[in-house]
Write a protein that binds this DNA or RNA. Structure first.
Lengths: 141, 141
DNA sequence: GCTTGACCTAGAGAGCGGTCTAGCTCCTAG
DNA sequence: CTAGGAGCTAGACCGCTCTCTAGGTCAAGC
């Protein structure tokens, strides 16, 4: 058995069958999906690999539009590797920036968690925690 | 001068005035914003601090709904610190998971970037790169 | 007095990324 | 023969997060 049904691909990729059809309509598949005589989609392992790449792109915040552009470059075939590289590098920068930003957020959140943790550990009856009307910025947030 | 106009707060936080009003309507502000006699909003430095927190929450993927819940806990005043802590910890986990996922994506992307970089560095005339119809998964993606 | 610009409210609209429905065809098992 | 389940298409709808518009107020400067 050489081809996969849409249901099988959904199972393997974690995408819903809806999403798979949606991605296809949106032009995110490198090769046109073959069809059986009855019109049903037949996916190859390469399609699954490609989809898994797309999922990585998506989950790192690449918009569908950019994935589509990349897909088109690949579809055009050899000769535009520099363009593909530029697109990938740009996304790479983007992902690095996201990680950086998340780390900053994590620091702030961790700082707050620690404050609350200390407070909760110390018990709530010590009166250290003021009422809203007299809260300072750091206590209020 | 003790109060800030909405425009000044927009400038300091990077949020648009639209977004500031929107956040207020959505109940994301810990304290009700004071108004001048003419109805204009007057923000305090604490409001700005709070908003900067919200921005950290948002940019790390906390939905407005969750920020609202946190805000409500803070508004209720002392006594629910354990709840706030739980919320913050849950988000902390979420952020860590996001960072992890992004790092995985970054690995994949970096792997592809390296492949393309080598190819582009080697020049495009060497025929190593096949046409779409014969691409394998790793070459195609 | 008039203009300009910042501000106000309520509510519509927009972009993204799906998700779901309606109404249909097919195939297979009982 | 029939029921169930998977698939098909086109297109409506959704949740989220803004963003903008319409229609107005208000204060300061020329």
């Amino acid at each position: 058995m050489d081809g996969l049904s849409i249901g099988q691909v959904a199972e393997r990729t974690g995408l819903s069958v809806h999403a798979l059809r949606f991605y296809e309509r949106e032009g995110l598949l490198a090769d046109a999906v073959r069809r059986e005589s009855n019109g049903r989609r037949v996916y190859t392992e390469d399609d699954v690999d490609w989809l898994n790449m797309c999922i990585k792109f998506r989950s790192s915040g690449m918009p569908l539009d950019t994935i589509r552009k990349y897909t088109e470059l690949v579809r055009q075939g050899a000769g535009n590797e520099a363009d593909r590289l530029a697109l990938l590098k740009s996304h790479q920068d983007h992902v690095r920036a996201q990680i950086e930003e998340l780390n900053e957020c994590l620091n702030v959140i961790t700082w707050k968690v620690d404050i609350y943790q200390q407070h909760v550990d110390a018990g709530t009856a010590d009166g250290l925690w003021v009422t809203p009307s007299t809260q300072t910025a750091s206590e209020a947030s």
